[in-house]
C-alpha cells in the first residue's frame, strides 16, 4: 500500500493502519538496524521498541516528511545512540555501517531471490563449513571463539571460512 494511503488509514482506523504500516516496514527496518548495529537481537529490539513508542505516543500523526524517510531516520538515530552507548567502537566501522545502510536500504536486500541465492550457496557447503560461516557472520565470533565453540583448531576455522567465502563470492557474482 502507498505510504499516503497508510497515513490516511491511520487517521481513519488507527489499529488497522498501524498493522499495515508494521507489515510493510518491519522487516526492512530490522535490516537497517541490523546493518548498523551488527547484532541481530539488538536490531529487532530497537525496531520493536520503536513501533511500541510509535503507537503509544501517536507519533505518526505528526509526520511532516514522507513516512518512509521518517521511519528510516528514526531507526537510524536510535541505532546511532545505541552505538554511542557501547563502550568500544571504532569510528571507521561506524562510517562504514552508515555507508552500507544507505547503500542497501533501497536496493532490495530483502529480495527473496537473494535469500534463495544465499541459501543455495550455504546449502552447497559441507555442514561444518556452513555452521562456522553462519556463526561467524551472524554472531560476530572471533576465530578463537568459533574454534572453541566447534571444538576445532583456529586453522580449521580459517580454512572452512575461506571455502565459504569463495563459494559465496562465486554464487553472488552470478546473481548480480
Amino acid at each position: 500500500m502507498d505510504d499516503i494511503l497508510i497515513l490516511e488509514q491511520l487517521e481513519a482506523d488507527e489499529a488497522k493502519g498501524f498493522k499495515i504500516l508494521f507489515d510493510k516496514y518491519y522487516k526492512s527496518l530490522c535490516l537497517q538496524a541490523f546493518i548498523l548495529l551488527d547484532n541481530s537481537e539488538e536490531a529487532e529490539d530497537v525496531v520493536q521498541t520503536f513501533f511500541l513508542k510509535l503507537w503509544q505516543e501517536k507519533q505518526y500523526l505528526q509526520i511532516e516528511t514522507s513516512l518512509k524517510s521518517y521511519l528510516k531516520s528514526a531507526i537510524r538515530n536510535t541505532c546511532l545512540n545505541k552505538i554511542k552507548q557501547r563502550k568500544t567502537y571504532s569510528e571507521g566501522s561506524m562510517e562504514d555501517a552508515y555507508l552500507i545502510a544507505d547503500e542497501n536500504s533501497d536496493n532490495g536486500l530483502e529480495d527473496k531471490e537473494l535469500q534463495i541465492q544465499v541459501e543455495n550457496a550455504l546449502n552447497s557447503l559441507p555442514e561444518q563449513c556452513r555452521n562456522i560461516f553462519i556463526t561467524v557472520t551472524l554472531e560476530n565470533k572471533k576465530y578463537q571463539e568459533a574454534a572453541d565453540q566447534f571444538g576445532v583448531s583456529i586453522n580449521t576455522v580459517k580454512t572452512q571460512l575461506k571455502r565459504a567465502f569463495s563459494k559465496m563470492r562465486e554464487q553472488m557474482i552470478g546473481f548480480k
Partner: peptide, 10 residues
Amino acid sequence: SFLGAKAALF
C-alpha cells in the same frame, strides 16, 4: 557477498 549473506541470514 559477506554482507549479503549476513543480511539474508538475518
